[in-house]
Design a protein around this nucleic acid. Sequence first.
DNA 1: GACCTTCGTCGAATCGATTCGAGTGCGACT
DNA 2: AGTCGCACTCGAATCGATTCGACGAAGGTC
Lengths: 348, 348
Amino acid sequence: MSIATRPTLASVAKLAGVSASTASLAFNDSGPVSASTREKVLDAARTLGYAGPDPRARSLRRGRSGIVGVVLEESLRDAFRDPMNLAMLDGIADLTGPAGNSLLLLTETAAGRSTLVDAPVDAAVLFGCSPVVDEKVAILLRRGIPVVAIEGRPIPGVLDIGLDNREATRSLAEHLKGLGHSDVALVTLELDRDRRRSRVTQKLLARATSHTALERVHGAREVFPAAGGLTTLGSTVDEGRIAGLALLGDPETRPTAVIAQSDLLAVGVIRAAAELGLAVPGDLSVVGFDGVRIDDPVAAELTTMVQPGFAKGQAAGRGILELLAGREGRSVSFTSAFRRGATTAPPR
Amino acid sequence: MSIATRPTLASVAKLAGVSASTASLAFNDSGPVSASTREKVLDAARTLGYAGPDPRARSLRRGRSGIVGVVLEESLRDAFRDPMNLAMLDGIADLTGPAGNSLLLLTETAAGRSTLVDAPVDAAVLFGCSPVVDEKVAILLRRGIPVVAIEGRPIPGVLDIGLDNREATRSLAEHLKGLGHSDVALVTLELDRDRRRSRVTQKLLARATSHTALERVHGAREVFPAAGGLTTLGSTVDEGRIAGLALLGDPETRPTAVIAQSDLLAVGVIRAAAELGLAVPGDLSVVGFDGVRIDDPVAAELTTMVQPGFAKGQAAGRGILELLAGREGRSVSFTSAFRRGATTAPPR
DNA sequence: GACCTTCGTCGAATCGATTCGAGTGCGACT
DNA sequence: AGTCGCACTCGAATCGATTCGACGAAGGTC
């Protein structure tokens, strides 16, 4: 009846008349324990209202917490608004979950110490296109925590799950060029750690820290070396629409095609076009990236590169399990597939 | 150079020539430590590549892990596909994050022991409309872990964040009745723990375990006592479409209005109607629930009840912080607002 | 010069379990 | 009957930090 203090393994053991070590064995099915002893222990636990070994103590002793950190850089809302990120998360959970690991969401709260420092994770996945990975990785590696990065800039000691961002974007650009386009604008993901909306300038690219966004720009520029464009604050329809309105507003400078770095952005651009009375693909061709299933009739018709999000997540999960098992783990790279939709056509 | 063993606070202290207790103080800014001592300790840490106190040990000693569990019952993909859930998650993070807590995603992997048992969480949020809360809650409470439930059936010891599901649905039903509808069908969320698509029968309702879905059914039946309908596997556009096709396929039995229990489901029903050549709201009125911003032109026009998802999440977060601080915490209930869209009209 | 604060540091206890080697008792085998 | 082996059980060490009370030295007061 003592309200102040919760029962511990020791108190259960005492009530059951056995030692703490035996009680521990009884709870873990490991080691040889007679059936009758186990029953006694479990009975005592029931009597005391003991709910099993304290995870905190257990994880200290075992050196494992059963938690995998998922390092996101955006707010949760932004990160998960993009179905591609969800698919990857799902892929990670698909493999780590059955192995007994839960996912801890680590977002970068700008203020104060990084939450990374205090998280009892066994391993971490750097998620999405993170412009600020380096310090994070340093902290994690110093801790001896295995790290898997999805589409990061290759870093020694980190398992990388790659994507053919450059080549894939080049395919899209070549598709547009093949249709006869020459005046093409880019709508990019965030390039920089202090993200903001701005023109894509050489200077900006020079100090860009987002590997994914940068690679995609380069891929496009391999075909359209002079392509300009706008950066956004992230992969959302709204951001795409804002960039679209800015790009398409002036008939003088209007491009004939837009390469958006995600499907969500592409949908936004298309929406902007509609608002401005432009027909897609008649007046404007638009391509996206990801090949996500968006519940939007427009998106279903998008010309885009389809990337295997779930598989990427699974690969990351597999990598984590490998690393946790003390094995090496292999970096993997995925390729995207061109999907011709109904949003591209020859320029007018 | 020892590869085998990572530095500990003790080794850092030894190198710095101070005691472990002092080193601990140096890392925590708590207690009085001279500047020079702190420097010595930090230097030693740098030399040894020590990344700060081990979170596992710290959490054992402190009795706090800085982790809040988010108990989901669906797969991650399903749970986060619904913007309403995301908004709530965001609201939770909005308050718990700045207080130094991270969110641990706890999904019910059907197989094996519940992951709840082994999670080192300080508190837990039961998320969304969970049909199987009871056992979970029992485990958590026995552990002495504070629990907040969003739209759960009221349970002693659990802080509840409620919503006027019944009244809100009745408003929608009355709106339809006012328009002249009498033949109304329901498209519900999952009612049962072993979810499946089926007719809404009395028997099914009797053993339903999802409080939210059940309340919404009751609210509708207060106006249309005989309303039948179909259950779905969850809140997705696809599920809504499937239910819609089944409900609307036969002209003989076709209702003049559908009450869908979420906006996503409603969009699906509307899509099904379109496929069947039915005009909304001409041939069919459809109402949803949630008032989420879906990137879908149709959804933006939905007649629905707008519920404050983010605020609900915040309330849950606030509740958690209260409970963690040892205070009582108050259950809160939110109300939804009727929003008349363009998907309802008098029956033909 | 004696006494009292204040500041900084240290030792030891503690958080709650897991784990390993050692010990005990009992049945079986020769 | 003696010895061996097996199946359990136990004690003690350990995981890595935090925290509290005690202690010593420096500085200030009368």
